[in-house]
Structure formats: C-alpha cells, structure tokens
Amino acid sequence: MKTMPKLAVWKFTSCDGCQLSLLDCEDELLLLAGQIDIAYFMEASSRQVDGPYDLSIVEGSITTADEAERIQKIRQQSHTLITIGACASSGGIQALRNFADVTEFTSLVYAHPEYIATLKTSSAISDHIRVDFVLQGCPINKAQLLEVISAYLNQRKPQIPAHSVCMECKLKGNICVMVAHGTPCMGPVTHAGCGAICPSYNRGCYGCYGPKENPNTASLSHWWQTELGSDNATLLENFRNMNAAAPAFATQSLTFIEKNHEEK
C-alpha cells in the first residue's frame, strides 16, 4: 500500500469560516480521509501528528509577532503550502487596522491596552513566506478547495481561474445588474470563484473574492461615480472590506480618502 501524504491545517488570525468549509465537505470528507492522512487539524480532531507535512493549508492573517514566527516554522515543515481565504491572501477584514492607528483604538477599546500585544498591520501569509497556491474568497468555496486538494493529490494544475466574476455571471446566464438595473457591482474587478452568487440574486458583487488578475479599479470607480451616481463613501465601503489590504483595492481606496480630504 502506498503511504498517504500528510495534511496539516493551520489557523492564524481569522474567523475559522474557511476551515469550516473543509468540514462542510461532508460527502467528500470520508473520501478525502481515504486519500490523505489528516495529521493535524485542530478544528476537526485532537489528534496531532508531528511534521513534516506534505501539504499544509493555512487560514488567517499575521497580526502578532508570535504568528510571524510560527508561520516560518510551518513553512519549514511543509513540502507544499497553500493559503485559503481573504485573511490569508490579503490580511482579511482585520487589515482595516492598516489604514488606522492601532495604539489609538486599543486604548479606546480595552480597559488594559497594555495587555494587547499586536502588530500595527494585518498581513497576508505570502508577505512572510513563499506560498505555493493562494485560494481567494471570504469564505472560500468548498468545491474550489476540493479541486485544489484533488489537483495536489493528482499532481495536476488546479482549475481555479483568476478571471472576473462577470465570466461566471455570463456562463450562468445572469442578467448584468450594472447594465440592466444600474446597480453598482464589483464583479468586473473581482476574482471568480463564488459562482456569481450576488448577481444571481440581483445584487451587486461585494468583492468577497478579492481582486481578479489585472483589475482596473480606477475605471470601474469612475463609472460608478459618473454614471451610477455612487458617492465616495459607497466606493470606499466596497474597496475596504474583506480584501481592503489587497494591493489593487488598497491603492484604489486611498484615492477616495484623498478626494474626501480635498472636498473638505
């Protein structure tokens, strides 16, 4: 019998939602357990097998000095390492701190801010170590996670296209909410993967999956403003959410802040 590869699932600063998508693969979970040795997955089992690991799946962002150290050790123990979710790929919603003063809000929120040991920024895993594959999404799509794992197990390319959500919309036969209803939609700059859920329910895309490859955030923002009547606040909200620190979105959102200052 061939020895099964060893899988570890790691958590950093995150909500656990992406790991849950793995547990959510109810039908496939048994199949998976037959193909890979789930050696470390605290969310699912207290069994802890020591490294090295063939495949590490990392959820969450780096927000403390401790985490910055721990991720290095995990990389050293992992042959292949993939990150899952918006936190791991761009810093997550907690990266909103990157645009503000952490000392200021810890002093407002906590009775004893001196107990809080945190970094000034929340950063992507790939800012710290080499990552073999990044699976975007908040939360990730479980079918995509299975696809990445299947691809790893069978040593093939994962079919995770980096194109726009618009592609998914059109393949599904959705009606474009921007063109037909005048609803602002982040789809044209957002990475596919969710299956265009929001436009399928006649809502604009929120950009949960982060930037697509080659996104033109400036042109989309300009259209929202000039043709759809969106104000700076709406634009800011859309670019500053789960993927606020993804470079394409961060750069774009800063232009709205500058504009706000100019207007004041």
């Binding site: 194109h163 592609m167 474009c176 789809g187 044209p188 042109s219």
Partner: peptide, 13 residues
C-alpha cells in the same frame, strides 16, 4: 486600456 476592465462581457454577449 485605461477604461477597459478586461472583464470579458463583450466577448461573452
């Protein structure tokens, strides 16, 4: 290219 989003809608419709 400054305006185009390379979103692919034009080709798909």
């Amino acid at each position: 290219a400054e305006r185009c989003l390379s979103c692919a809608n034009c080709t798909l419709v």
